[in-house]
Design a protein around this nucleic acid. Structure first.
Lengths: 195, 195
DNA sequence: GTCTATAGTCGGATAGAC
DNA sequence: GTCTATCCGACTATAGAC
């Protein structure tokens, strides 16, 4: 707690994005969340956009390192699905999904936000892709699949589900459950014929 | 062209959401897009939030009626996938997906936007669900699936892909292609054993 | 590095003339 | 129904004291 001002601003930006959304992420509200003066946003980061961009980079860097080990240890499709579910829950709880979704929404109209957002998302994509590629290579009918494309589709689906969950939590839960049933069925039925 | 003021505001709100995003959807910018005076937003709709909400209702109402017939004519999983792809492309081109994504992002922090957004999304979900339910019922291994949950997952995925496409068009195309390969493979391989 | 103060702009919303 | 004019608060950003 009470870290240096720069860090407080980075974390204030994160929590403001999470709770107020991209439309409420102003220098003033971020500074308030960080407990520092509003002018310091511009002193340390030059502009609000730069602070937001730096904030997602900051958050993404710390998280993904934690995943690398866990994803690397996975050796079956079933394990991958279980880990995926666990990571999804953790990311949701940390607010990383909500923040990324808000940045993504903001980046549609504000090109300055796009690079950092893409980078933050790509950290996940790369991790998912590497684990996916390793597992699917051992499943014959899955060899033809584009793991990079699938990894991107999975990341996009998480974003969509996060936003949907914000307006209809029950519906989103149903969607997740249905996807789990589907993937689970695929993992057991036509997947076993390996090599 | 040059419809009555109310309609112009509804359409101005739509195109502003589409091009400026939720963070740029102010009474002034909407009125400018509509070519009318800013005060009329409040005269006709009371508040910006109400106008935005009414705008998505307005847009959703007109679209879905067009779909009902087309979805109703579908009689195989393959046809459903083809139609789904076509509708997805049309919705993207019209900007309906972009607008819904922005409303969804805004609704996370602004509960006033949530009801209309949920309703707009649900129009799709209901259509997808009904077509999905009809088709999957004829495929034995698919009987256990929750079509409502799947329909919600599909809608959420479209939203996520739309936002992802805004910052990485190439990556989103890859994701869509991968999903098409996957669903296509599922539609032909283990799906044929009907009844 | 951090603060106050302030310039200048843009936002939501209302009053009242036409 | 539509306009101008306006209040007032919030915003980005900067200048300058400490």
């Amino acid at each position: 707690m009470a870290a240096d001002t720069r860090t407080r601003l980075l974390e204030g930006a994160f929590s403001t994005l999470r709770t107020q959304g991209i439309a409420g992420a102003s220098a003033r509200s971020i500074a308030a969340a960080a407990g520092v003066n509003q002018a310091l946003v511009f002193y340390h980061f030059g502009s609000v956009d730069e602070l937001l961009a730096e904030s997602v980079r900051h958050a993404a860097r710390r998280r993904v390192e934690t995943y690398r080990d866990r994803l690397g240890a996975v050796s079956s499709l079933r394990e991958l699905l279980d880990l995926g579910r666990a990571l999804h829950a953790e990311e949701r709880a940390e607010g990383n999904l909500a923040v990324l979704a808000q940045m993504l929404a903001g980046a549609q109209a504000d090109p300055q936000l796009a690079p950092a957002t893409t980078a933050g998302l790509h950290l996940w994509v790369a991790e998912i892709e590497s684990a996916l590629g390793r597992i699917l290579a051992s499943i014959k009918p899955a060899r033809a699949l584009d793991t990079g494309g699938l990894a991107r589709a999975i990341a996009a689906t998480f974003i969509g589900l996060e936003l949907y969950g914000g307006v209809d939590a029950q519906g989103a839960t149903r969607a997740v459950t249905a996807l789990e049933q589907l993937t689970s069925a695929l993992a057991t039925a036509p997947a076993d014929p390996a090599t």
